[in-house]
């Protein structure tokens, strides 16, 4: 494979766009949440200020090598997801480093950041962080079950593991989207995405008032800044993944913004309505209806 500087620069530019879109998107979502609660709400640019402030914290306290590597792993999980994700269909510049079989890699990368976080938080010295991270991992494992089933169903349906090919197969008409051709897999995946985004019914792991026993308790300053940067990237990338798999991909940036926002908004919409689940409840919930739908999707495929 020869080195292509233009492609690299476009990829970095895409990363920048995705990062800023992620921060803006979460700002808009928080604004909408505030307006639902009849509040004026936080400024939409608050995410950037928080990032600058976190990177400007003067004193940092470390708890060892793994404490440093936790956020780094998490960020490399998010950036790794981005690198292998074709962003715009049919565009040579914005398809990043996607290749045949990248779907498998993406499924793995989703877990990668969580594992890195587990290692880092384990060294944080907080006595309860082990509980927090084990709760996060157990919930994420059960989220993966229906998602993986849905992805397998799609892979069987389209006879490919390349996201670009899956998107290509959905072009032409809106009725070619997976959401119409394979509704069971879509529903299973859309239910599991609720957990992947970490909004209200399933946000026990990192909810602010649960932080005393959550993984990022000890992270502050730059560490927290890295985690937040990653969260912004990850939210967009997850939304783009689902957009590619189920909603026909995007042919330009505007379509990508709109679709990813709507997919992200779906989880927020559910989160506004439903109260928070406890871990054992959410684990059971994910293993019931979404898993069942995923199995049905596989059987039908």
């Amino acid at each position: 494979m020869d080195f292509d500087l233009t492609k690299l620069l476009f990829t970095l530019l895409g990363l920048l766009i995705v990062l800023n879109w992620g921060i803006l998107m979460s700002g808009i979502i928080r604004k909408i949440g505030a307006r639902v609660a009849k509040r004026y709400g936080i400024p939409v640019y608050q995410g950037w200020i928080d990032l600058i402030k976190n990177y400007a914290i003067r004193s940092q306290i470390t708890h060892g090598i793994m404490f440093y590597l936790g956020p780094v792993f998490r960020l490399s999980g998010g950036v790794g997801l981005f690198l292998f994700m074709p962003m715009i269909f049919g565009s040579e510049h914005w398809s990043n480093y996607s290749f045949q079989g990248d779907l498998i890699l993406l499924m793995y990368f989703q877990f990668f950041g969580m594992l890195g976080m587990a290692l880092g938080a384990g060294e944080g010295g907080h006595p309860n962080s082990a509980i927090g991270i084990s709760r996060g991992l157990s919930q994420f494992t059960t989220i993966e079950v229906p998602m993986t089933l849905a992805v397998i169903a799609i892979a069987i349906q389209y006879h490919t593991l390349s996201i670009a090919d899956i998107v290509a197969a959905q072009q032409g008409s809106i009725l070619n989207w997976t959401v119409f051709t394979n509704p069971f897999a879509t529903v299973a995946a859309m239910l599991s995405v609720l957990g992947a985004f970490g909004h209200s019914p399933f946000n026990l792991v990192k909810a602010p008032n649960e932080i005393p026993i959550g993984p990022p308790t000890e992270y502050h300053g730059t560490f927290l800044g890295v985690l937040r940067t990653n969260a912004a990237i990850l939210h967009v990338i997850e939304a783009v993944l689902f957009m590619n798999l189920f909603f026909g991909g995007a042919s330009n940036w505007f379509e990508l913004f709109l679709k990813s926002f709507l997919i992200y908004f779906w989880s927020v919409f559910v989160g506004m309505v439903f109260p928070r689940f406890r871990i054992e409840q959410s684990v059971r919930w994910f293993l019931k209806i979404p898993t069942l739908l995923g199995i049905i999707a596989i059987i039908l495929a």
């Binding site: 004026y40 932080i211 992270y219």
Partner: peptide, 19 residues
């Protein structure tokens, strides 16, 4: 709460002294 809404001033609550 909606009446006072300190969020609009960028004031947010954190649960841990580190942050």
């Amino acid at each position: 709460t909606p009446r006072f809404d300190a969020y609009r001033f960028g004031v947010q609550m954190r649960a841990t002294p580190r942050q």
